[in-house]
């Protein structure tokens, strides 16, 4: 059973990677629009801004206005990454310093709390339900379950099979629904930086230009 799950996790992980690669190829099959307009700013600086200051509360009004949601999302994602990290530790029985384990536990627990909070928010607010579809709930529940089982597996014995089983389901689901944004986030954010960078909007420069 353990061997079956072990190979199941590895298989599902590679399936996930391949499926995401397929999605990437499908996306690029739509073709690219060649940018013809002469640049006014620096697109590279725009990209740096997009992944840096452009995501910070002092720059972004939506973050300032929704600090709890924004940081819940942040912590949630750290919890997920901690869960995946722990999954690979458990697959290959790597040992790590106890401090790292403690950190993983904290990230998993706080990630779980935040994930459940976001799920409740989506369920309770009419404005959120209007923009949601079943996938939004399924994805959240699957990820919460994965994080929860990772935490249990650290704390108790006899949980590993459930944890690995959940990991298989999660990896198989990632390319199906909204969790695919784990890949597209980086592309979209880069495009944001390029767009506003070349137009000279971001990063902000408080001076006039001759072009």
């Amino acid at each position: 059973m353990t061997a079956f799950l072990y190979y199941g996790v590895i298989f599902s992980f590679f399936f996930c990677l391949l499926a995401l690669l397929g999605l990437t190829l499908r996306t690029f099959s739509f073709g690219n629009k060649k940018v013809r307009a002469a640049f006014r700013g620096d697109w590279k600086k725009g990209v740096v801004y997009a992944f840096g200051a452009g995501m910070m509360p002092w720059e972004k009004e939506s973050v300032r206005q929704h600090l709890v949601t924004y940081f819940s999302g942040f912590i949630y994602h750290f919890g997920i990454f901690a869960g995946i990290f722990y999954l690979f530790l458990s697959l290959w029985a790597f040992s790590v310093p106890i401090l790292i384990f403690k950190l993983i536990q904290i990230l998993l627990l706080s990630g779980l709390v935040c994930g459940l909070g976001l799920l409740i928010k989506r369920s309770v607010y009419s404005s959120m339900r209007h923009i949601s579809c079943p996938d939004d709930f399924v994805a959240n529940i699957l990820v919460d379950g994965f994080v929860f089982l990772a935490l249990l597996d650290i704390l108790f014995v006899g949980i590993q099979a459930y944890f690995w089983g959940m990991a298989i389901i999660l990896f198989l689901y990632i390319p199906v629904g909204k969790i695919r944004h784990c890949l597209f986030f980086f592309y979209s954010r880069t495009l944001f930086g390029v767009f506003f960078g070349r137009r000279g909007v971001y990063p902000k420069e408080r001076k006039t230009s001759r072009v």
Binding site: T27, N32, R180, H181, F184, S188
Partner: peptide
């Protein structure tokens, strides 16, 4: 009219709703 950029955008929205108040 779809390009890879537009297709990527349509694959990216996580329905977080933070845009509403903007």
């Amino acid at each position: 009219s779809l390009t890879s950029e537009y297709a990527a955008f349509l694959n990216t929205c996580a329905h977080c709703g933070l845009c509403a108040d903007s």
